[in-house]
């Protein structure tokens, strides 16, 4: 039986291309955890922004291999070596994706807006000096500027534009990126969010966050938004996650803080005992 995800020994490499690491594995684990939902979702168009080695888009294509209705895969990267390596990785696994060398999704936004059913993205999230952002080669795979947010904050509105009504976005975020603030920001645009996988390594704590449009979320008026935003952000900042709390404290947090409701509402405890914890 063919492997359901990309095999490391078949993943191509190049000195200027980020190799699959914990963050890539966590993202693919999140896709695997959501596999039955993804198959039910029946995505027609799938896109990876920043495909690097090709490990993730190859895995997505293998996971969705027999999706009813068929799916078309696209992947972008700014780094020409990454495009080449992804092409080799895809071929070694016998799957296909259309590759485009571009910055995020430049050139696709005009026509592809509102059409993409699944976007996966492992962005350059490492906090670095601002002048490291936008360099060539492998630096483009990790340099994220202040709080690691420079590129993430460019990607989010583009993903919002590209996603179809039923579209899902899976994104790798680091604690230092302040995921709770990102989720609040996306909530203002009508997105619910859920942490599908949380994983701590020696250096970092990774969150794989899934975003989807939720019609239950009332889009706030501009006036309310600016009024609420300051309050919510200060709460969000005080809720630095990840951190571990007793269940009873989580319940009281749920009652106390509007911000936590954003995650609580969409928890799916059946997937994981504790998809993430507030801190």
């Amino acid at each position: 039986m063919p492997s359901m995800i990309a095999q490391i020994r078949l993943v191509s490499s190049h000195p200027e291309v980020y190799e699959p690491c914990e963050d890539s594995f966590a993202l693919v684990d999140a896709l695997l955890a959501d596999r039955s939902k993804l198959l039910e979702h029946r995505p027609a168009l799938c896109l990876e922004i920043g495909c690097g080695s090709g490990y993730v888009i190859t895995s997505l294509a293998l996971i969705l291999g027999h999706v009813e209705g068929g799916a078309h895969y696209m992947a972008t990267d700014i780094n020409p070596f990454a495009i080449q390596v992804t092409s080799e990785t895809l071929e070694a696994h016998g799957v296909y994706a259309e590759l485009i060398r571009t910055d995020i999704a430049s050139g696709l936004e005009g026509r592809l807006g509102g059409s993409v059913d699944v976007i996966v993205c492992n962005p350059p999230y490492v906090p670095t000096p601002e002048d490291e952002v936008g360099r060539d080669g492998i630096a483009s795979s990790w340099a994220g500027g202040e709080n690691g947010r420079r590129v993430i904050d460019k990607i989010l509105p583009i993903a919002d534009n590209l996603l179809s009504e039923k579209g899902w976005l899976y994104m790798v975020l680091l604690t230092e990126n302040n995921p709770s603030e990102i989720c609040l920001h996306m909530r203002e645009k009508g997105y619910a969010s859920r942490i599908v996988v949380q994983r701590s390594t020696e250096e970092e704590t990774l969150h794989i966050v899934k975003f989807w449009r939720d019609s239950d979320i009332q889009l706030e008026t501009d006036e309310n938004r600016s009024k609420n935003r300051n309050v919510q952000l200060s709460k969000a900042n005080s809720l630095r996650f990840p951190f571990r709390r007793q269940a009873s404290i989580v319940v009281s947090l749920r009652q106390t803080f509007q911000v936590s409701a954003l995650f609580m509402n969409s928890w799916n405890i059946s997937d994981y005992d504790m998809p993430f914890s507030l801190a």
Partner: peptide, 20 residues
């Protein structure tokens, strides 16, 4: 590049209003 992709791409140059 498939023609499906061609059908989804447009010119992204600043100032171009009709890139498809």
């Amino acid at each position: 590049m498939k023609l499906l992709t061609h059908n989804m791409l447009s010119s992204n140059i600043k100032g171009v209003t009709n890139g498809f």
